Amino acid sequence: MSRTEPRALDMALDEALPRWHRRERHRLPVGLPAPAVMRAAAEVTWADVPLFRAVMTGAGLGRTRFPADAPVLGLFLGNGFTVLYRGEDELLVGGIERISRGQPVVPLAPGTTPDAYRAFDAPGHLKLAFNFHCAGGVLSTETRVYATDDRSRRLFGAYWLVIRAGSGFIRRVWLRGVRRRAARTGGDGGPVSRA
């Protein structure tokens, strides 16, 4: 059954995917200005998240390279996901995947709006969205998955049981990498002066 929740915060994620079948949330105090934290979220590299990089390299049996200086978001944006919203306090990324062996990803065009994303409802698909949000000195990330039909929901539910713990670990590592990068840039986008 789909869930909805009262809007505690006005987030683009709520607009793009107000209902979901699976959800995961994590938060971390950052104590830095939201725009600097969102910039770090967009720019965090594999060097900033070495444990995440190791997990992904292991999962791919070493066949996929994750260059240290490449942005982590590039993994998603290069595989059919797109930035649905970017603001001073939130970065929202979304994708659509088919439950099939053929072409599993439905590439989203850059500039796809949260409204257009929400309207997609073709059977046999999963809508996956995740954000980074910074408010009150706290950085959070939330991942939501919505299945467009019952079969897709059941299949993804079984997969979710297998990956959920690892997914949560990766998100916590990712949050810490964003916080480190934001702190390293001094909250203004530039490197911290050591003078």
Rank of each mutant, 00 (worst) to 15 (best):
126 L>W: 09
151 R>E: 11
128 L>P: 00
139 L>Q: 03
81 F>E: 01
82 T>M: 03
79 N>D: 15
148 T>I: 11
149 D>Q: 13
26 H>S: 13
184 R>L: 14
37 V>E: 00
77 L>P: 03
95 G>P: 06
171 R>N: 05
145 V>I: 15
55 V>M: 09
160 W>A: 02
89 D>M: 04
106 V>R: 08
20 W>L: 05
79 N>V: 09
66 F>H: 14
65 R>M: 09
153 R>S: 05
184 R>Q: 14
160 W>G: 00
19 R>C: 09
170 I>R: 06
182 A>K: 02
148 T>G: 07
24 E>A: 15
92 L>C: 10
145 V>F: 05
182 A>P: 01
20 W>G: 01
109 A>G: 13
164 R>D: 05
120 F>Y: 15
66 F>G: 03
5 E>A: 13
63 R>T: 14
1 M>W: 09
193 S>W: 10
54 A>W: 14
84 L>M: 12
147 A>S: 15
35 P>E: 08
149 D>K: 11
145 V>E: 04
179 R>Q: 11
6 P>T: 10
124 G>F: 07
108 L>Q: 07
66 F>L: 13
44 V>D: 01
164 R>T: 10
158 A>S: 12
43 E>P: 01
38 M>A: 03
42 A>V: 12
97 E>V: 11
88 E>D: 15
110 P>H: 09
170 I>M: 15
37 V>Q: 00
86 R>I: 04
56 M>K: 12
185 T>F: 12
5 E>M: 10
157 G>D: 15
99 I>E: 03
47 A>T: 05
119 A>N: 12
172 R>W: 10
11 M>H: 06
130 F>L: 06
55 V>R: 06
175 L>R: 01
194 R>Y: 14
189 G>R: 06
84 L>P: 02
23 R>F: 01
24 E>D: 15
77 L>F: 08
184 R>F: 12
43 E>V: 04
60 G>Q: 07
60 G>Y: 04
12 A>W: 01
152 S>I: 04
1 M>L: 14
50 P>R: 07
77 L>N: 06
84 L>Y: 06
31 G>W: 06
128 L>W: 01
63 R>Q: 11
191 P>N: 12
115 D>F: 05
69 D>G: 10
31 G>C: 08
113 T>P: 03
135 A>V: 14
83 V>T: 14
82 T>G: 02
60 G>D: 09
83 V>K: 02
67 P>R: 04
107 P>Q: 12
175 L>C: 04
180 R>V: 01
142 E>F: 00
50 P>E: 09
22 R>D: 06
124 G>T: 09
166 G>M: 09
175 L>M: 06
49 V>C: 15
56 M>S: 13
46 W>C: 04
105 V>D: 06
42 A>E: 15
